[in-house]
Design a protein around this nucleic acid. Structure first.
Lengths: 343, 343
DNA sequence: GCCTCGATAGAGAACGTTTGCTATATCCTG
DNA sequence: CAGGATATAGCAAACGTTCTCTATCGAGGC
């Protein structure tokens, strides 16, 4: 693997000059010399060593995205957005699936710190683990002190996201839409209470209810995970609870998918017997039968902006805050209630 | 950010000694000295600089996965598998979505070469672009010469995958299953002819037909993309073609999803009027209505093995070849044909 | 008590860049 | 044509490690 020293020797110039040519520095180099260096680089198939460069700048052109699980379409979209932004700026993207395990997240951040990643983007909601969070904070502070950028796309322990959506307003809008269809008994599959984002969405549910003049009934809220199985379990819990409902609003699409499945298995017609609504608008939402009504989040755009945000920070720019719009998408899993209640 | 020099100074030892302690070298260091160094490292919140280390070893603990699109569930699963393997070995994973663009793929590889990634895993099928491939080969050869590992999980221009599945046998098995249900007019949505993997699957279709004693009818094969829209378009093409068929076998699940959607929109009952089968068994396949019959590929396991393969190569091991098993999964999108033909 | 050996520690080079400083032509200005 | 400015080029240090030698120290064999 040819180094810049060899390029310089072949071109008959000093390494300093060769470096100035290949690194697109703005230091003046005569056209003739420049051409000789470029020619030598081509001949030797020279590829600059980003590690050596990074050692000097204590930063390597790599941005990391920390997600809960890359297999979850929500995160895949966000990562893709980051990647699109990163690619055009010459950055590489590292993906870290934490499985919502604070310890695993911490160990990733340590690794990222050791390779001097230029930026780390937290795509998933913050985790509620005080013990681990303390070490995380130390790592993050050290990274930032070293010039790295840290960006959040979701609410977390220390504050609001740099780029995000208004989860509360989004869910409230869906509840309003459901109420607009005539629903009064709207259940809510709330997701894991330990996730900040889930808490925001629960708050949105309460707000939506309040704005529609519907009383909050705690029997209609069930805390769950954020996966398919939890959606199915949530439906069972609701059914077992005995409180009547004509619609189920879910804190995310994956939950809604599970609910749809279980409802069908239990012989309920959606939306005839009960309406179901999701949140996020992952690609699969349009593909189910019935297709899922949901709230669209500009997932990919969030990722792209997340990178831009990091890039701006890296360039010495000001930290800003971006709140992206959400949109209620009514498909075929929601309709006016047949009667006042289902179960 | 504390360096090993500062750790050494605080501990009152040389950098050499400090290095030997923190890098878990097997060079003997007295227990007392070791403890002092560890203590100093803890105090200073020392995190080794992987760039400096990498500069010396000309390799950084990072493995890259090149996929067509991380948003495609197939690739998300594979990446997750690689990540699982990598995490336990202390490696970070870089994701590169090439969008099936050879030029983009090449530019990613160049970037990977510049950061001295330890390994690159090609998850997607090779691309058919002789001009770009030549530069790719040069990069890959240089990386391998520098000690990096290159692993393929899909067939490509230069040969068979290191870890993969028997695509041909898999599709043939599905065709056999369809034939077993009584289908004789089986159409095939073939995917992009420029993809090696699509060619293998087409070969599987022909083999399955032959083994079932069914004549090949070229009017029943339509070349497409590998996305949802292509599935819908494929159905239209089949319908327009006029040749009767009672089942559609698809070269992958995403195609089948598109087909399912379009068939429903056109008023066909699946599997009543026509059976549909996919390939890959992405998570969504179990969630559609009707749920999709498909051929299961051990996607995550392929990723994990891909990493293991790379790791073995990095450790000086022998290159091996792994062929993982596939399994026909019959769900609700397939049934015995009502009559001899649908369209 | 001297010599050798094993255990442990340190010095310093090397990895491939970038960059501040210095040096040398070249060119104007008067 | 002298003197200073300007445009280029080179030298060498520095980034944070690891690793090969070399050095030191104590112990044990004779």
């Amino acid at each position: 693997m040819a180094s810049i020293t060899e390029v310089a020797r072949l071109a008959g110039v000093s390494t300093a000059t060769a470096s100035r040519v290949v690194s697109a520095s703005d230091y003046p180099v005569s056209a003739r010399t420049r051409e000789r260096v470029l020619e030598a680089a081509r001949t030797l198939d020279y590829v600059p060593n980003a590690l050596a460069r990074g050692l000097l700048k204590s930063r390597v052109p790599v941005v990391a995205v920390i997600v809960h699980d890359i297999t979850d379409p929500y995160f895949a979209e966000v990562v893709r957005g980051v990647e699109d932004g990163a690619a055009s700026a010459g950055y590489l993207v590292i993906t870290c699936s934490s499985d919502r395990d604070a310890e695993r997240e911490r160990s990733y951040v340590r690794l990222l710190r050791s390779i001097r990643a230029a930026a780390v983007v937290f795509a998933g909601s913050g985790l509620d683990d005080p013990i681990v969070n303390e070490e995380m904070d130390r790592h993050l502070a050290a990274m930032q002190a070293g010039g790295a950028a840290v960006v959040h796309l979701s609410p977390y322990a220390r504050g609001r996201p740099d780029v995000g959506v208004d989860n509360e307003a989004g869910i409230a809008a869906m509840v309003a839409a459901l109420a607009g269809l005539g629903h009064r008994r709207i259940a809510f599959l709330a997701g894991p209470p330990s996730l900040y984002v889930a808490r925001e969405r629960l708050a949105g549910y309460r707000r939506g209810l309040a704005e529609a003049g519907i009383a909050f009934d705690e029997r209609l809220v069930v805390g769950t995970g954020f996966d398919i199985a939890s959606g199915a379990l949530g439906v069972e819990a609701l059914l077992a609870g005995g409180a009547p409902f004509s619609a189920i609003c879910c804190a995310n699409d994956v939950l809604a998918l599970g609910a749809l499945q279980r409802l069908a298995a239990r012989g309920f017609d959606v939306p005839g017997d009960v309406s179901v609504a999701g949140f996020d608008d992952i690609p699969t939402a349009a593909l189910t039968a019935p297709s899922l009504s949901t709230v669209r989040l500009p997932l990919r755009e969030m990722g792209r902006r997340g990178f831009e945000h990091a890039d701006r920070l890296l360039g010495g720019g000001e930290p800003a805050r971006d709140v992206l719009p959400t949109e209620v998408i009514l498909r075929n899993s929601t309709a006016a209630p047949r009667s006042a209640s289902a179960a």
